[in-house]
Design a protein around this nucleic acid. Structure first.
Lengths: 329, 329
DNA sequence: ATAGCCATTGCAAACGTTTTCTTTTTGTCA
DNA sequence: TGACAAAAAGAAAACGTTTGCAATGGCTAT
């Protein structure tokens, strides 16, 4: 027996219309006096609004759906914080659904879930949107935006860092520090998202501009995970040809760091690392990792702005944060 | 113009009742033939169920609300994975709302949000439930359970590790390794949750059993954060009296580790660390941290089981995972 | 052929809001 | 005092489902 506006109406001796108006702050359709009375009885009865009913009646939702692909990516928390903050300011609530890691079926189901809750917009966090997902999304006629991952398909608008620039800046930074033999580790170029390919292009551009002929042994593919970093380092070997490496994520960077340590390869003396992401993880390892830091919090903010039809940017800023994992040669 | 079951009914030439029954799999209230027809038209029209309407009609929800206190705690992901998995199996969806970090107002608001969505149950992840929150929850008449934090107030049922035992086992482990002067760092005993106090009691019991007279300089309070670890180590000083320390969380452990490193205190030669939580973080630092590992994934699972009225446990298991941060003396 | 039963289908009310339109009350000004 | 506008309040329909109950039709057993 939950209490409804009908109960309030009865208790306060007014119509449910009035109660509704008071409780949803429809300006000046009621007197101050009744407003007070209604609010007090609502309070006394312990009334809680039924959002489902309200959204059904208004035909619009005040919730935004957030689908998160993986619990692996440790930066999603920052994005979520951004989303949450901006959503709160607009009196929206965020419904977050985890889609498991790399499980196409769960991912589809997660998208379905937010659609069925008829949210006003959908934010996809590092979700590798498949063709199937896309038809589902388009069909639902709900605006959706990919966060942190870019796609070429112009059906998918996104807010992310400029991954080409990330690859380019990271590599150029190492070149400026005097490195010539530079690796790239942990990126995934098989996905629908352009992330890996763009970073690789940027990397190659920087090398080319510096007149460096790259070897394809310098590039180690992976999936942005800690383990990818370990594997990459194993492939580079105990006396690596490269003197510096761009890690596709902080986790990859740490994997490289630890495997290097096992190999007796000193970072940064024997090998320099710059990692992409720049989350707090960079600061808790030794040496602290120099990083290309992405503006995840802002991505979240811009995401909800985009959903509420405010103007927004396609790319958020990146910056290089110098810590202790890169040596000048 | 979204498509409703009415549209399907019209297109398929049946009543909306039939459509509803087919689509929600009410057994044997319809013929195979109509079922096929209805399903096909639903598919063709791109129908998406309106959950709000359905829940309003049935007066019950298939969603469970998850309120997460802080984005700091890096173990919440594991709990969420557990929740998600178990929820999926029961055809429930999880609505996750972040409550900011230590912001009482946002926390209350988050709880309000899930209540207003009339979820069938609420899971509170490391939420420090205040008296205010409690009245709100009780009033809503929705079952709720605290995950990972225990309370004495018997209004709050919980699923967590046995924090007393955690403190006890961790300390005893160090004692068994020959340590006598053992610190405890990073716990918070000011909160409503019993976590910190219970761990401290366990710690003290183990010390007492071993006939060790503890010094209150051995205990450094904090808030489970990286910074708490750093501060604790600073207070222990460059030549610490203690030879081993129980860290209140992995983050605290890492904070201690890094500050020790700065001080030239070698881990584990000069100082042994055992950290509480046992998340992946333990494995990415050097040396890897020995830990009292909590079963976070299981907490998530048990949480939704409890909400669906299945029998469950109050305490999930803990185990000690030996890595490289404790020395035998 | 007929009664009776079962399988299938449909009608209509209900869920808790919001909102349009209408009605009532209040207040102002001549 | 009366007229009238403005302010306040209410009635009822609508949103998209589910479901109790009633209706229909076909089949079986007599």
């Amino acid at each position: 027996m939950t209490v409804t506006i009908k109960d309030i109406a009865q208790a306060a001796g007014v119509s449910i219309t009035t109660v509704s108006r008071v409780l949803s702050n429809k300006d000046s359709f009621y007197s101050e006096k009744t407003a007070r009375k209604v609010k007090k009885t609502a309070e006394k009865l312990g009334y809680q609004k039924n959002t489902a009913a309200a959204e059904l009646a208004t035909q619009k939702s005040k919730a935004i759906g957030v689908v998160i692909n993986s619990t692996q990516t440790n930066f999603s928390n920052s994005i979520i914080e951004g989303i949450q903050q901006e959503a709160n300011q607009r009196d929206l609530s965020a419904i977050i659904v985890f889609a498991g890691v790399g499980d196409a079926q769960m991912q589809r189901r997660a998208i379905q879930t937010v659609i069925e809750r008829s949210v006003m917009g959908i934010l996809l966090l590092s979700v590798d949107i498949s063709a199937d997902d896309l038809t589902l999304l388009k069909q639902a006629q709900i605006p959706y935006i990919s966060l942190s991952q870019a796609f070429t398909d112009d059906q998918i608008s996104y807010i992310s860092s400029d991954d080409f620039d990330i690859g380019y800046q990271a590599t150029k930074y190492l070149i400026n520090k005097g490195h010539r033999k530079i690796g790239l580790a942990g990126i995934d170029i098989q996905k629908n998202a352009m992330t890996g390919r763009n970073r690789q292009s940027g990397y190659e551009k920087a090398l080319m501009e510096a007149g460096i002929e790259s070897s394809n042994k310098w590039i180690q593919y992976g999936d942005y995970s800690y383990n990818s970093g370990v594997m990459a380092m194993k492939n580079y070997g105990k006396s690596p040809e490269i003197t510096a490496v761009v890690a596709a994520s902080d986790m990859v960077g740490i994997g490289i760091l630890n495997q290097a340590h096992d190999y007796g390869v000193d970072v940064p003396k024997d090998l320099s690392i710059i990692s992409i992401d720049g989350t707090d993880l960079c600061k808790i390892v030794q040496p602290q990792l120099t990083s290309v830091t992405q503006a995840f919090f802002e991505m979240g903010i811009e995401g909800v702005r985009a959903l509420t039809n405010e103007k927004t940017t396609e790319f958020t800023n990146i910056k290089i944060e110098e810590r202790d994992s890169v040596k000048t040669v």
